[in-house]
Design a protein around this nucleic acid. Sequence first.
RNA 1: GCCCCGGUAGCUCAGCCGGAUAGAGCGUCCGCCUCCUAAGCGGAAGGUCCCACGUUCGAGUCGUGGUCGGGGCACCA
Length: 583
Amino acid sequence: MKSSIEKLLGQAVDAMPELEDAPEFESLSTTVERARDPRHGDFASNVAMRLARAAGRNPRELAAEIIARLPQSDLVDRVEIAGPGFINFHVGQAAFHREIAAILSQGADYGRRPQRERPHILLEFVSANPTGPLHVGHGRHAAFGATLGNLLEAAGNRVTREYYVNDAGRQMDILGVSVWLRVLERMGIEVPFPAAGYRGDYIGDIATGIDTATLPAVTADELLDGLPADAPDGDKEKRIGALIDRAYRTLGDDGFVALRQQALDSILDDIRDDLAEFGVEFDRWFSEQSLSDDNRIDEALDVLKKRRMLYEKDGAWWFRATDFGDEKDRVVVRDNGKKTYFASDIAYHYDKRRRGFDHLLDILGSDHHGYVARVRAGLEAMGYAGDDLEVELVQFVTLFRGGEKMQMSTRSGEFITLRQLRDEVGIDAARFFYVSRSNDQHLDFDLELAKSRSNENPVYYIQYAHARVASVFRQLAERELDYDEAAGVAALKRLHEDQEKALMSTLSRYPEIIELAAANRAPQNLVHYLRDLANEFHTYYNAHPFIVDDDELRHARLALVTATRTVIASGLGILGVSAPESM
RNA sequence: GCCCCGGUAGCUCAGCCGGAUAGAGCGUCCGCCUCCUAAGCGGAAGGUCCCACGUUCGAGUCGUGGUCGGGGCACCA
C-alpha cells in the first residue's frame, strides 16, 4: 500500500520539469510515512519541503503543484496540504478492503516477498564455544539470530544459517583434561582440580560415559610430581598446560585426542538438541578444525602473502591490519609456529565468500567488537569489499528473579543454562523476551515476569488475541451459524466502526513492518507491531460482537477477524512463538 | 588513553532515512463481566528525551565537546 503511494508521488514529481535539477532521492520511500495522527490521513509525505530549497520555492506552493500532477488512482480518496507543506493522503476504504481480501487469499504468505537469488546472506550466530552447555546469554543470540533469519527471509532474502564450532586450539585440550581428571577421580585417583579447568557438572556426566577399562594407569603422585602451583598461589595457565602435557603422555596422542573428541561430540550433541528444542536450526555446523585439516588456513595466508599483506617480525608473521584502519598489526602465526585464532577467522570468512555468499552477517557478543575491524581488514586485504561483512553486536543479559539480580559465574559452573531457562519460563516467553529489546541494549531478563501468566506478560497478550479468534469460531459452530469468506469479503464495505477502520489500517501495515524490521535488523519492531495489533483486536472485541444475526455483517466482521488471526500467526511464527487455538 | 553500546514517565523499554501535540507495558487512581475467554476493555495522573553548543524551515533523532553507566583494547579462544 505504501509503495503504491510512493509510485503515485514519484510520477507526479517526475512530471515537474522545474524539479529536474533538484537532488534525486534514492527512493521516495524515505519521504512517505504512515501518518501518526488519523486527522492527517493515512500517509504523509514531506517531499515538497525537502525539494523546496533546491527548487527555490515555497513548500506549500510546491506541494499544491505536486498534488495537481498526481495520477488518478482509486487508492486515494483525498489529498491535502497541511502544516508547513506536508502532503497528506487519505486512502479510500475500498483500498483497505482489497488489502483484507489479499490477507485472506494469501494467508501465511501475506507480507512476505518472493525470494531473490542475490544477495545470498550467510547468517552466522550463536557459535558458542563447545566447552559446556549454552547459558542464558547464548539464548539471546539464538533467539535474535533465528528471528532475524526468519525476518530476512520474509523480506525476500536468501539466508543460510551457520554455527561456527570452535573445536580447535587449547580450549579443546583443557576440555579433554577436565574430563580425564574426572575419569581418574572415578578410578580413585584424586588430583586437585585445576583452577583453569572446566568444572561444571556436565564434565562429570561426560566422564561417566568413558570406558575406564581401556585407559592406561597412572598414579596421583606421577601426575602431581613437579606440577606448577595452581592459582591463587601460582600460574593456573602453566599448571593446566603441564596437565595437558601429562595427559598426552599418559594416554598417547591418539588416546587423548579420542577422549577429547568424545567430550566434544557429547557437548555438541547437547547444544544441538538444546537449540532444536528452542526452535533454532542451522543449515551447517562449520568446524574450525576442518579449516586446518584441509589446509585452508594456509591457503588464506598464502593469498595474503602474495598480496604482500604479511611480514615477518620477531619470529612471528604479522598481518598489516593498520593499512586498513586497525590500530595495530596483528599476529597470524606465532613465533612457536602455531596459527592464531585470528588466522582461522580470516580463513573462515574467506571461505564463506568463496562458497558464494555475498553478504556475511555475523551475530556476535558485544565483547567482540574490537575484533570486527580486524576481520573486515582481512577480507579487504584479500580483495573483497569490507561492506560484505556486517556485524550485529548483542549486548549482555542480566538475569533477575522478582527484581533480584542473579549472580552468575561460569568458572564455578554456577550459571543458569538455556535449558533451565526454557524449562522454567517456556519457549514462547523466552523467545519473545529475548527479541523484545533492541540487540544493542542490555537486557534485563526477569524470570518471574517472563513466567507470569498475567497481563504483565505481553507474549500472552498477543497469543490471547489469536486464541480469542479461534474461540469466536468455536462459538459460531455452537450457535450453528455460518461464516462465508467470499460473502465476508464482498461485504467489507459494511464495516465502518472506528475500531474496524483502525484494525484494517494496522493490518495493512504488516508488509511495511516486515520490510522495516528486516532492514533495521530489528526484530523488536515486529514485537511492538504485534502488540499494537493485538491491542486493536482486543478493543474491537470488547466494543462490538462479531457473531451477529445480520448475515452480511457477520461474514464481514468474521472476515476481518480471520485476517487478524492470519497476521498474528504469521508474525508470531517469525518470532518463533506459537499461536495457540485456546488458552 | 583509544574504541563500541547505552542514558526518553516512578520502573522496564519503543520511537522507522529529521517532521505535525514524544509513545507502550508495568506500577498508581477511577470505571466496565446477564453479552463471542476479564490472560480483556475504557479513562486519568505522570516528561528539563543526561548537559552544552552547532547544523536545519523543523532535532529525542544529525554533528562537536562534556558527563554518567556497561563492554572491549593478547604471539587466549
